[in-house]
Design a binder for these strands. Structure first.
Lengths: 245, 245
DNA sequence: GGGGAGAGATGCCGC
DNA sequence: GCGGCATTTCTCCCC
């Protein structure tokens, strides 16, 4: 694609708040929270309506470079390349795209104000336990959930059948050392705040590593193997047998 | 764009391992590690050479839905929509795209085996301190960095001028409560392993929050305000005054 | 806007 | 593969 045509199209599209997607052969220099350089290669570039910029390599999940919303752009046509400059003055971040060749370009106005509905989060686990306390043990009486107080953000907080205080930390995937540290922090805060000698700590997760189990035991904490709930099961598993392309 | 043409183009492109980008009006259902539903709206969809799938809304940094590499695809043409099914059998994840309208489509073979070069990471901070120990204090003698032992991954480990052991944890942005918990974990492990009563803990970061400072003090740890290094400064700041579009 | 913590976290490196 | 952890983490929620 010709440089002048590319330049005109992209500037008009951004002015109209359209979404821009192009494939190109380019080099990337970033300077901001860190400094990076990406040698020449083929990438996909997206510029969104909020002036977010994303650069994707042909493999992998995450963008290799990016700039957050609110960027401004500057385009400079040279003999053998286009210098596409992006800056975010508020964040003091700068990204330069040295475009050697343009493989394709599309611009289009996109309309989308929808929010995603998601089920199976850590909060859903806490809710599930709150509503069905026997999942923890007989006689467990939850008091609060998602408590954002000075004691910390405790997932579930309550009393056991002997009226001992219980702090529960939920993890939706795997409980790790960080989770035990976190639980310990909460338990100690509660102990100190209430002047208590013994407060129980329970880590709830589908599974934990060996080291995590050891650390839990060292601090006298407990583990409950519980899976996060999934409310939105919409899939007909029978259809999944077919092979795709 | 016509559904049959879209179907043919996309299947051929995926078969040839090209990168596919299209804009469409669609609905998304995901089922896997969690369950999600995204009502109808305009999005950009990318299918990469490694069969990664990304779905982006016209605003924001992160994909609203995605499927990791190694997916297979299935396409079903209906009267008023295309059902584009994605599955990752290894991860037991499924994503259905109900495409109502196609705004644009591009496919292209992309070549890129380049790795990014990045400076200013936490490891760079640890290296800087290792090479210039006086940044911590006079007489500090670092022994190891990035120590991946059973004691944990200690950024920098050494002795002070009085031959007391020092554990240093670096954070490239802001030191927080989690960082203090982490430092505490390492200090306690070292104490126990060496049978020592006193091991110093130092948190190194550009800044810390008030609560973090308090928690540090509670455990007798110290703080050093140090910025991460940036080696690749390539930008001519004077050019940044110009306004872009 | 800062603080604190989750995420369908992802990606990296070491064992 | 799992484990432990940083990330230009990002995002959300509450103060």
């Amino acid at each position: 694609m010709e440089f002048n045509k590319f330049s005109d199209t992209i500037q008009e599209a951004i002015a109209r708040n359209e979404t821009v997607v192009f494939g190109c052969n380019c080099e990337v220099v970033y300077s901001g929270r860190a400094e990076s350089f990406l040698p020449v290669g083929d990438r996909v570039v997206i510029i969104k309506a909020d002036n977010t910029l994303l650069i994707h390599q042909p493999k992998g999940n995450t963008p290799i470079n990016y700039m957050k919303e609110g960027c401004s752009f500057d385009l400079e046509i040279n003999k053998d390349h286009i210098l596409f400059k992006t800056k975010n003055l508020g964040l003091k971040e700068y990204l330069d795209l040295k475009i050697k060749e343009i493989h394709f370009l599309n611009t289009h106005p996109l309309e989308d104000d929808q929010k995603i509905q998601l089920a199976g989060s850590e909060k859903d686990m806490a809710d599930m336990i709150f509503n069905d306390p026997n999942l923890i043990e007989d006689g467990f009486k939850p008091l609060t959930r998602e408590e954002h107080t000075k004691y910390g953000f405790i997932d579930v907080f309550g009393y056991d059948k002997d009226n001992a205080l219980v702090v529960i930390e939920c993890k939706r995937f795997q409980g790790d050392l960080k989770a035990v540290s976190q639980l310990r922090r909460y338990v100690e805060k509660i102990k100190k705040a209430k002047g208590l000698d013994k407060v129980r700590g329970i880590l709830v997760a589908p599974k934990i590593s060996k080291n995590t189990e050891k650390m839990l035991n060292d601090f006298g904490f407990e583990f409950r193997a519980i899976n996060p709930p999934k409310y939105l099961e919409r899939h007909d598993k029978k259809q999944r047998k077919l092979d795709g392309f």
